[in-house]
Design a protein around this nucleic acid. Structure first.
Lengths: 182, 182
DNA sequence: TGCATTACATAATGCGCGTTATGAAATTAG
DNA sequence: CTAATTTCATAACGCGCATTATGTAATGCA
């Protein structure tokens, strides 16, 4: 019917996602997004209506790829508490030192107070469900792990001492496994 | 010597602090700060050099008043683990529902990746030291509480279910006290 | 081969931002 | 009373922002 698209949407969304993770929504200019996505602003607006629309697409992309993949890689179904420990420790081993943080955490804070974007509540629900399942169904404990997870991401983004965090995670899961052992 | 100041610096800093807490640094315009502080931009720039300078003053004010007062009110020296529980539960009882969040947490996320502002690392250190002391010196456990604390603030700001958080906190400190009991 | 339609690039627009310049008001020192 | 100095209000400035308008390239359909 018409001219076909030539750009790689996956690359585009991945680039935009990185910008939003690093800088947040408000501090990311459309120029930044042009450079990171390799696309001109006209096309961005043609495809995603506006900056907000691009953000929504990029954040859905985050949930689909980064979040889901991290769970699948470290704590898939049946991995139990050992999987959760791997998941938590993996946060310390991010390529850039984890300074980009988690788009869910970052957005929860940036848009806090307002009605939250869907992908935030959705991502939090996915994590909570994962934790509850791997813990054997203890939902209250899952909420505790969810909070701990978010807090670790905050501290990592703040440049907090990684060794201290690693020791804390290790000890936390040790006592967690001990408690679930008896 | 010259014309004396007529404005109440405490009110000014408190107003600016609220704006920064609610909206973050980037999303807070100088106009917002004028309205909240009851001061015109000319005076703001005269007294605090620029927006960044006002932010630094407001965040120092936060550490001095909000943070220090919260610790003193709920978990002063000698209050032990029971005091820490009160401190954590107090986060759920903030006037505005806690949607403004904590300026330390919010700034750690917003400026993540860059060198952190002094008041962030300082505030985190104050909390960690408080936790370690009230726990009886267990530093690794203090880091765990620090992360939990930050994560709770993230979830509150995200509008997370308060009942679930309260149940989680209660249970968490129950097992914590039990462990420190034997 | 046009015609309609969509993709994409370039350029322009208007607005709100942080910041600065200017001037008046208020105070003290001499 | 005057000069010096600092406070504070008003107004203006320039810049970068998100967004829109315009034009051109590429495809399928008639």
């Amino acid at each position: 019917m018409a001219r076909p698209r030539t750009f790689d949407e996956d690359r585009l969304l991945t680039g935009a996602m990185h910008v939003f993770r690093r800088q947040g929504f408000a501090a990311s200019s459309v120029r930044d997004l042009e450079e990171a996505s390799g696309m001109t602003s006209g096309s961005l607006y043609n495809s995603y209506r506006d900056k907000q629309g691009l953000f929504e697409a990029a954040s859905a992309h985050y949930n689909r790829t980064v979040l889901a993949r991290r769970i699948e890689d470290h704590a898939p179904e049946g991995a139990g508490i050992a999987g959760l420990r791997r998941l938590f420790l993996s946060l310390l081993r991010e390529p850039d030192g984890g300074s980009s943080g988690c788009l869910i955490t970052n957005s929860a804070v940036e848009f806090g107070g307002k009605e939250q974007a869907g992908f935030v509540t959705e991502g939090l629900a996915v994590l909570r469900a994962c934790f509850a399942d791997r813990l054997g169904g203890n939902d209250t404990e899952a909420v505790g792990l969810l909070a701990l997870y978010q807090g670790i991401l905050v501290l990592i983004r703040a440049g907090y001492d990684k060794a201290a965090l690693e020791a804390m995670i290790t000890q936390h899961f040790e006592t967690l496994e001990k408690r679930h052992g008896c």
